[in-house]
């Protein structure tokens, strides 16, 4: 299978079951909402090293937020709802509560599994906090030096998918980067997903375990171009750089849609082929076959 002349390998991305939440941050301006969201999603690339994966889902116009102010939607993923609660409370507490003008709301109100967020952060108010029930949802008003921080008491947590991915095998580093940037730009329009790595792109894909050290993950030597000739390389001739795009989503359908949008955008001149990372289907619950996903996409 080829898209725009780029070979699509007959392989699959192996994705994992996770738990996810959506936080809607609003601010006096879009810039302040974005600022809080950016801080909140820092150091959240991999659940292995960062305890969670988080990213900005997108900006929201004022008429799409609960309080009528511009907002930014953040998705956060961990292995289970308890992990989501711990991490989202830490991050909202340190990065949103502290940020001028912001408020924070649950973006998954229909989910039956609830995690306590404002219910934890309210204690910062030292018994001066006030609650307000509006349309059946409880909010906490925490007094702060600026005025008040408003945060919803509980957030929804739902089963989610982490680790959707594809690899861009480029003839040069510049070509691989340009293709990855194009893919990220296209995938930014898909809702329900985030790309948790810097700029949405990973240059250091990993394999499970280590040859010499007691590490859970080490460099994916089979895809490192500098190791060609030293290891059993997975790289075809002519490939000199590989970049990966990792996708987490609230549903497997959203992850699939992101891949369906992103891969064709990455199929540009200078790209040799598109592949995906997997563990032979032994570890993840979801196998996202590239060619099946791309059926119907014009070649």
């Amino acid at each position: 299978m080829r898209l725009n002349g780029v070979f699509i390998e007959d392989t699959f991305a192996e994705a994992f079951a996770m738990s996810g939440a959506r936080a809607v941050i609003t601010g006096r301006t879009q810039a302040w909402a974005r600022e809080a969201a950016t801080r909140m999603t820092g150091f959240a690339t991999s659940v292995i090293g960062c305890k969670c994966e988080a990213g900005i889902e997108g900006d929201l116009p004022a008429d799409a937020t609960p309080d009528g102010r511009p907002g930014t939607s953040v998705l956060l993923f961990a292995f289970n709802p308890e992990g989501v609660q711990t991490r989202i409370v830490e991050r909202i507490g340190q990065c949103v509560l502290t940020c001028p003008t912001t408020a924070c709301y649950d973006g998954l109100a229909e989910e039956p599994v609830r995690i306590s967020v404002g219910g934890q952060l309210r204690y910062f108010g030292d018994k001066f906090q006030l609650s307000k029930v509006i349309d059946g949802r409880r909010y906490w008003r925490v007094p702060v030096m600026e005025g008040e921080f408003l945060v919803e008491e509980t957030f929804g947590a739902r089963p989610a998918v982490g680790g959707g991915n594809f690899l861009i095998l480029g003839e040069s580093a510049d070509a691989a980067l340009a293709a990855a940037e194009a893919a990220v730009a296209a995938m930014g329009r898909v809702r329900g997903v985030i790309l948790p790595f810097p700029g949405g792109i990973v240059r250091s894909g990993s394999k499970v375990g280590s040859r010499h050290y007691s590490l859970k993950a080490t460099t994916n030597d089979a895809y490192c171009p500098t190791l060609r000739g030293m290891v059993e390389s997975a790289l075809p001739d002519g490939v000199n750089s590989v970049l990966e795009i990792v996708i987490d989503g609230l549903t497997v359908e959203a992850v699939e849609e992101a891949m369906r949008v992103g891969i064709p955008a990455a199929c540009r001149p200078g790209v040799h082929s598109i592949s995906a990372g997997n563990y032979g289907g032994k570890l993840g619950q979801y196998a996202l076959h590239l060619r099946k996903l791309l059926e119907g996409v014009p070649a």
């Binding site: 309080d67 009528g68 408020a103 509006i134 008003r141 408003l150």
Partner: peptide
């Protein structure tokens, strides 16, 4: 106490208006 913009009130009044 002070003069400010209570965010919860925007939420409350929008609910009153929209719902």
């Amino acid at each position: 106490a002070c003069t400010y913009r209570p965010e919860f009130l925007a939420l409350l009044l929008r609910t009153l208006r929209d719902l």
